[in-house]
Design a protein around this nucleic acid. Sequence first.
DNA 1: GTCTATACACCGATAGAC
DNA 2: GTCTATCGGTGTATAGAC
Lengths: 181, 181
Amino acid sequence: MNREELIVRLREVFEARGFEGATLAKIARASGLSKASLYHHFPDGKRGMGLALLTDAGIRLERSALAPLREGGEPEQRLKDMLLGVESYYGSGERSCLLTVFALGPPNDVFDGLVERRLVEWIDLLANTLQDTGLGKKEARRQARDLVSRIQGAGVLARALHDPKPFRQVLRRITAELGLR
Amino acid sequence: MNREELIVRLREVFEARGFEGATLAKIARASGLSKASLYHHFPDGKRGMGLALLTDAGIRLERSALAPLREGGEPEQRLKDMLLGVESYYGSGERSCLLTVFALGPPNDVFDGLVERRLVEWIDLLANTLQDTGLGKKEARRQARDLVSRIQGAGVLARALHDPKPFRQVLRRITAELGLR
DNA sequence: GTCTATACACCGATAGAC
DNA sequence: GTCTATCGGTGTATAGAC
């Protein structure tokens, strides 16, 4: 069992059940390892797992959605690529964002800081890109916040309704509104 | 200690920590009652508390945000009133929606059904109102889904960033976009 | 209605064999 | 690296006095 595959298995449990809802018994079952073996891979136990998973989610979000915004091409193309990355990151609405799941659990200084930094980074990058399309600085920031809200909300809605379609529809709507055809 | 005041106290714990994170010890501390006394008010224990709180949240959302949509006035006024109700329901971004918090916890047939029904109801009512403004049926439904997404996402964002401002800004933006001035 | 005391299951975590 | 067995603590829930 290598760490990469292990993280994928753990992710499913934490994403679906939240940090508190992910008990070691369920994690062990999902991973095929015993509780004791999990401590070989994560000496800090559940705290370490949560940290590793949240870091992993941040990196995946960065690669899928944030990195495209940093590229040097046309801003319209960057926005388009970001939305494609978001679609992939959310598994087309079938999966939840771990940052969101953790954010709605109990307060935790370590976790909360990681979540907050990624979201701020996302909004900042998005605002810069929107500015490159000709928007004013303030309006770009407002729209960036709004877009991240919509994406997060779409993920929540899909989960709450047990249906990935609302997620895809909202993403399509955003694409259309931004004039990305 | 009457039930109304008790529910308000419990709400704070469940909203901030989620169902799994809300332990009886914390609930007892927050309510000023002992664990045993809580079982006098909620014979079914934590399950009963969660159900009562989720029902309460649904009713508050109904009164604040959904009821205005049912009224007979101008659709623009109904939308305006809904947004005011949403602002109030979310405590201007200082509080989270318990439906969202529960939706992102572990799957639970009872809870999930309640959450789902309220959200579907919200989207339906909103779509009807938007249709009354002259939108086509399909477009009204799409926009209704989008609006609920944005509101939910705004609540998540405000919580994740520990700052109510993004919530208020998104709500203001929606108001402006709908031409409600 | 509220309490103290307690039952008992499950939690995260560890010991130590292989 | 993986396991079985087990620890101490905390979780939900109950008994029974007042």
